[in-house]
Design a protein around this nucleic acid. Structure first.
Lengths: 142, 142
DNA sequence: CTAGAAACTAGAGCTTGCTCTAGGTCAATA
DNA sequence: TATTGACCTAGAGCAAGCTCTAGTTTCTAG
């Protein structure tokens, strides 16, 4: 029995996902998993490849700024309404918009940082003497 | 003397920067300011427009993921080596690279999220029946 | 069969970045 | 001048997201 079922240990899942084993157990306690992992006779967790995929999605959501509480909500929707996609779609679409906003803000801030770098390079080149405040009123403090 | 010096209250700085007055005092304690604000006779803080600009830069750095401790380091460089730009340039260039990496990761994750949305839309359209795990081994759990 | 690595549970602890409380003082306005 | 809103200090508290400890048990390789 169980011929193709690749069972993964928590350690294997940890290295595959970049999460620590502590974090995996923590996520489980927090209800982020779609279901509790199965266990060996001795009580060790056994994960499936699907669990891995789910964790990879979780990582993407978290890395784009979704709080764990919201990821849990998402997991709850999957568990309680497996064939109603509307709630999940709404969440993902809202999150998509949030990520786009984040991209815009990031690009804008990057631009400002580059501008600062250019100013510093210029000051360095021209040997500008600086006080704490270098260039007064119009943009470019310190 | 001090004819054009527009002095700002902490409340004005708060609304101009989006930081709370609590946070401004907290930043001050943490050494994020280039210098302590001057005070009125009664002990109220008075900020300059330059302080505002500095805070706006701080916000950009923080919003792009620079930890406060690093912003403080940056402030320390300005205070201790006002006319040596090399350290600051190094910090900003490294941070620029970090932000670019963040942009790439964000774009990649956004792509994956959009793909997930597309899969859900498809499932919804075709009325796909789902278990907890919807589409098995190749990409697209839940 | 045994040693060492890896897993287990329950719960405490940590870091970052705020945020709020208490008990006042200061300042602008009616 | 009296009130009311803004400000002050010192320090406690909080939320998120891990991270680690202690003491024990299981698993695996030699």
């Amino acid at each position: 029995m169980t011929p193709p079922a690749a069972g993964l240990t928590i350690g294997q899942v940890a290295s595959a996902t970049g999460l620590s084993v502590h974090t995996l157990r923590f996520y489980e306690r927090e209800g982020l998993f779609l279901h509790a992992p199965t266990r060996t006779a001795g009580g060790h967790r056994v994960y499936s490849p699907d669990d891995l995929q789910w964790l990879q999605l979780c990582n993407r959501l978290r890395d784009t700024g979704m709080p764990l509480a919201q990821i849990k909500e998402f997991a709850d929707l999957i568990r309680t309404r497996p064939d109603d996609y509307s709630g999940r779609l709404q969440m993902l679409r809202e999150h998509e918009a949030a990520v786009i906003a984040k991209q815009l803000a990031l690009a804008e801030n990057l631009e400002a940082i580059r501008h600062k770098i250019a100013i510093y390079e210029e000051h360095q080149r021209t040997g500008a003497t600086a006080g704490i405040y270098t260039d007064g009123r119009q943009g470019g403090v310190a």
